[in-house]
Design a protein around this nucleic acid. Structure first.
Lengths: 210, 210
DNA sequence: CAATAATGGAGAGTGCTACTCTCCGTGTCA
DNA sequence: TGACACGGAGAGTAGCACTCTCCATTATTG
């Protein structure tokens, strides 16, 4: 198939397909002449994945390229793929982590790389909560961590190890594209729980105004 | 305090403070003359919150303003505040939802507004997973939903109903600023679980290349 | 009291990012 | 054979979150 069909099949504007090709999000087609190239199902799949990472996962073009690069590195183990993907994901905190995140994962007995970006992301989240005057309690953190671990067990269990072709893709999808799904579910659940327990009909009392 | 001190205390550049004032993220100070105004602790708190919503929560200026507007509407119940905040949060899907998300929450017995933005966000996530060739299984969704509900129960339980002044703020913080925390914990847990169960040392088998 | 500095506000400018347009030599097809 | 499509590359655009500049006014300092 040629570029226009690639665009039509995936619903991505041809100009954007060209842009993604230039940026290396999608591998080049098989050139059949100076101004002609052929694309196949692998291009369709990668284009769709790239589009999803950028538009739904919120990745920058650079991050998406880094993530998709791992698909071309079969020498890496799935665990390494996971780490690489995590480290390519936003946000990328500037400050180094203070020891609180580190000690939390130690308490939990989680074995994570000390340089994991997620550690610094956790630390940033904790710092911001303090700055805003609503610090996370140790107990709340522990509960959250316990539930996060149960989610992660679902995630890891769902990686298809029988068909290794798709395993790396599954890691990327499971990590990145399930995040918005999880957040949407949490919001819906919050509304449901709130409707049951917070009084949905009574106004909250007046509070001092600035 | 004047604007320069406000900037110094919060660590936000004065030019940015002015910008936030213009955009209505922070309420105006008490004018003491044609070119002078006084700011107080409420400005400090709101500025810090606005900063956190934009930089950590990833909200646009417009979304952040909408969210913070609810702080000035004491006639709204906490449940209404929650809904308004949710509907102001990104992403804002363009397509309307198909019935799958709706039927999922019905199966779960969750009572949510049919027009809730989170419903369309869920539907978008499901649609993208299908397009990418990794559709969410009914079973996986149910498990996720069950855990999401447990998280939501923690969230709702932690809203300080004794001190209603801060309740609305707590709703915002708990909804928006705990999201990155949850995602960071999930990533860390994924690494930990992966290190235990996925073989961290063995390379994954070769797979077909484009 | 006079000189100097800081202030609040508004408009214009900047830097970045994800596209999108334009162009052009080359291939395809009716 | 002539109209049209293609690929590739550079330039241009739109939106966003600031950031700079200016200026009349106010505060502070010597």
């Amino acid at each position: 198939m040629r570029i226009s069909e690639l665009g039509r099949v995936t619903g991505v504007p041809v100009a954007t397909v060209k842009y993604y090709l230039r940026e290396g999000l999608v591998h080049p087609g098989r050139a059949t002449g100076a101004t002609q190239a052929q694309y196949d199902q692998t291009h369709v799949a990668r284009l769709r994945l790239a589009r999803a990472l950028v538009q739904v996962g919120g990745l920058s073009i650079v991050s998406a390229r880094e993530v998709m690069t791992t698909l071309d590195q079969p020498e890496k183990s799935l665990h390494e793929v996971l780490g690489t993907v995590h480290d390519s994901l936003p946000p990328q905190p500037d400050h180094p982590g203070t020891p609180r995140a580190q000690s939390l994962v130690e308490d939990l007995g989680w074995q994570v790389r000390p340089e994991a970006t997620a550690l610094r992301q956790l630390e940033q989240a904790l710092r911001v909560l303090e700055e805003v005057g609503a610090p996370a309690s140790e107990q709340g953190l522990q509960s959250y961590a316990r539930l996060a671990r149960q989610i992660a067990e679902l995630d890891v269990a769902s990686v298809p190890r029988a068909s290794p072709d798709d395993a790396a893709t599954a890691v990327i999808v499971g990590t990145v594209l399930w995040e918005p799904l999880l957040l949407a579910l949490r919001r819906l659940a919050q509304e449901a729980v709130s409707a049951e327990s917070l009084d949905g009909h009574q106004s909250r009392p007046d509070q001092p105004r600035p």
